[in-house]
Design a protein around this nucleic acid. Sequence first.
DNA 1: CTCGTTGCAAAGGATTTGCACAAGT
DNA 2: ACTTGTGCAAATCCTTTGCAACGAG
Lengths: 158, 158
Amino acid sequence: MSYHSSAPRPPVQGAPPLATELRARGLRLTSQRQRVLAAVAALEHGTPEEIGARLRADAGPGGAAPDTSTVYRTLELLERLGLVWHTHLGKGAPIYHAGQQHRHVHVACQSCGEISSVDPTVLDSAAERLAAELGFTLDVGHVALSGTCRTCAEKENA
Amino acid sequence: MSYHSSAPRPPVQGAPPLATELRARGLRLTSQRQRVLAAVAALEHGTPEEIGARLRADAGPGGAAPDTSTVYRTLELLERLGLVWHTHLGKGAPIYHAGQQHRHVHVACQSCGEISSVDPTVLDSAAERLAAELGFTLDVGHVALSGTCRTCAEKENA
DNA sequence: CTCGTTGCAAAGGATTTGCACAAGT
DNA sequence: ACTTGTGCAAATCCTTTGCAACGAG
C-alpha cells in the first residue's frame, strides 16, 4: 500500500485520503465518489441500498443522487483504496463502513438485527489458534459474529 | 454411494429424527425431504445450488430430482426442525450442513473459497468477552470466519 | 482534448411465491 | 377424503454490464 510518514493519523481532514489515493493511481476525484464515501461514513453501517437511499435523501428533491450502479462501482473502488470495508451478515446484505481507522469486529443480533462494533481484540486468541493450528490468517475486518443481544435474550426468557 | 431410485427406502437407522420431528408436528415425511437431508449430510458443506446439483446427480439420468423451490423450502423446514444448520460466508452464499453432530466453526479462505471446520473452542474466549462486556450470547454455530488459508497466503507471497 | 466515469437500461443470478395437481396419512 | 407438499413458471431482489454521453485533469 502507500506509506504513512509518522504516527497513525486519526480521521482528520485537510488532506482527504480519497483525493490522494485516487490521484496516486491516475483516477479521478468526482463528486459521486466524495458523496458515496461521505454517506458510508455518515451511516455507521450500511448496505448498498441504504447508502443509495441516504444519497438520495442528501440530494434533496431537486438534486440528483448517484445512480445505483455507480454506488456499487464506487463502493468496490473505495474498498480497493482501503477507505471502506465490508462485512457479510445475514443473507445478501453486505454491510459497508468507513475503515480509515483501526478495524473493528461486527456483532449482529439475530433477533433484532442490531449491529454493534466491538474491539477486534476479542478475536485475538482465536486468530492465534487458527494461525498456529492451520496456518490460517484470520481477516478480522470481514468477520461478523452473530448471536443474541442482551435485550433480546431477556425478552426470550420472559 | 448411490442408491436405487426405485426403492423409496429411508436409508436411516431405527428412529430417524426426521420422521419423528415431522410427525410430532403433523407434517409429512416425503421422499424429497429425505433426499434433501441426505444430500446435505453427504456434502460436508453445500449451498442450496450445490445441494440441488447433488440431488440431480443422485437421481441419475432417468430420475427426477426435487425442484429448486422445494430444495429451498425443505432446507428452511429442516432448519426449523433443527436437523440442518446454515452459515453465511461470502456474498449470497448460504452454506448448509447437517447439524446432528456437534457444532463446529467454519473458516473460509477468501482466495480459494475452501471451507474448513475448526473446533468451536477457538471462539471460547471471544464468547466470554462478549458475554461479559455486552451481555451478548455468541452463536457459535452461525459464525463463519474468513481469511486466507496457508496455501493461498504462500501463493501471494511468491 | 483524452480517457476515466456516470447514468440508463437491460442482463443475470439467486430466491421466493401463487397455484393447480400429486401425494402422505 | 382431507391437507400438506411439490413442480412449474412467473415474480422479485440484488448486483453487474454494455454503451453512449459527460466531465475531470
